[in-house]
């Protein structure tokens, strides 16, 4: 019961050139939940943690540092 109510906070840096944000999520949230909470589309972002790409079903932990890379075409 307590675990369900517990919140986690992750630090998110979006590239290119976006300031860092702290996002609170329910305990047990996954990468896909983070994108949904931020109002972002899975199609438009690649998510990285500890320098590795993480899939949308990867669980998040309190204090995780997440880097979002925008999929941008044109150039």
């Amino acid at each position: 019961m307590m675990a369900r109510l517990k919140k986690i906070t992750v630090k998110v840096v979006a590239e290119p050139r976006q300031p860092a944000r702290r996002i609170s999520l329910r305990h047990g949230s996954q990468v896909g939940d983070l994108l949904r909470k931020m109002g972002l589309m899975r199609e438009e972002f690649i998510v990285m943690a500890k320098g590795r790409v993480v899939a949308e079903f990867e669980p998040l932990k309190d204090g995780d540092q997440i880097r979002l890379i925008r999929v941008f075409s044109g150039g």
């Binding site: 590239e15 290119p16 690649i46 790409v53 890379i69 925008r70 999929v71 941008f72 150039g75």
Partner: peptide
């Protein structure tokens, strides 16, 4: 999204700016 994943998985240096 898959071309960018390919670049990352293969360590290719690409320009990410818009």
């Amino acid at each position: 999204k898959e071309t960018l994943l390919y670049d990352i998985f293969n360590g290719l240096d690409v320009h990410l700016g818009s």
